[in-house]
Nucleic acid binder design. Structure first.
Lengths: 178, 178
DNA sequence: TTCTGACAACTAACCGGTTGGTTGACAAGG
DNA sequence: CCTTGTCAACCAACCGGTTAGTTGTCAGAA
């Protein structure tokens, strides 16, 4: 075929791409739909045709990005320091995702956790619980708290600009030491 | 006419109070100056007379709140778990401050650290360094990284709604264990 | 192969409401 | 009277969202 001029999926992809930059930089309230449309080289009305609203665009974008991150960094319950380290690297390589998530939590409340994220979290807690029962890692902390802290350490990439992967890994090692 | 007391400082205080609620809830971009004025029972023009702009109001508010927190929770280098625990409690009792700081960092970049905060941080790093040289705490992590992590653990109050002070204290204990 | 009509993709212009910020008048206190 | 804190009214720019109309694509009739 010749160069496709009209392609719904391509247009949605361009909009999502532009939305990533805009929302990560300005947040939901600060983002401007006109800027997103301009950056995507599309008409503003396409946002409303394909995503319903500014918030609809944000929600779909966040869901896609979270799914990607979940698939990209699988948990390794018997190597939590390594898991934290890989999460840290992913976050540092794609700082926009954490900014997106931070804005989402700030503006929508901390209970508004996307379903995909909540479910993935549950599976990870179970995996850690099994590893504890098998005696592979310390049982001083319960599985839920442990995952909270491992994830929390990995977002040093977001909080502390000069943090390193090695620092995160050593910290988690100490947390789970017998 | 009405029994209005004319008091510049009282008006500024009411505006700062209302601004705290508004900025913490909606962020800088999402905050509405009309709502702030209404909540303070003042006229919108007062904001511009006393603080210059919406951003000016936010900056002064953040500075005041940070100074208060710094004074309220002094560091105890030879009891870092306790320090993290007290920070955690403060943050949980006044969730608005962390929301304010989060919005500020997201919208202004992570290098834009208020001067008062940066200086207080330096003093704390030095205090930890001394405690390490005196052998009071582990020297596995350098003082700067250690403070980063202690502060980072304390903001579990912000990241993880069901976290407890005991969890934070135990975590920091493990981080600094010999 | 060429034409065509129906539909989906797209666009420019527009709309009502909102926003940060300003101003001129006025009243309280000295 | 003069200074100053206060306020209602106002403004220009902006913003999210809509709509009437245009254009590209392609199945299928000729």
């Amino acid at each position: 075929m010749r160069g496709v001029v009209r392609d719904k999926e391509a247009t949605k992809a361009k909009l999502l791409d532009a939305a990533m930059d805009e929302f990560a930089q300005y947040g939901i309230a600060g983002a401007r739909v006109d800027r997103i449309a301009a950056k995507a080289g599309c008409n503003k009305a396409m946002i409303y045709a394909y995503f319903g609203s500014k918030e609809g665009l944000f929600d779909e974008l966040l869901k896609i990005q979270i799914d990607r991150m979940i698939q990209q960094v699988p948990i390794t319950p018997d190597d939590l320091p390594g898991y934290a380290g890989r999460l840290f690297d992913s976050y540092r390589d794609q700082p926009q995702l954490l900014r997106l998530a931070a804005y989402h939590r700030l503006e929508n409340g901390f209970e508004a956790v996307p379903a995909a994220e909540a479910e993935a979290y549950r599976h990870k807690v179970e995996a850690i619980g099994r590893a504890q029962m098998e005696g592979k890692i310390s049982a001083e902390f319960n599985a839920n708290d442990l995952l909270d802290m491992v994830v929390h350490m990995s977002i040093l990439a977001f909080t502390t600009p000069n943090a390193t992967r090695a620092l995160v890994e050593r910290s988690v090692s100490r947390l789970i030491a017998e």
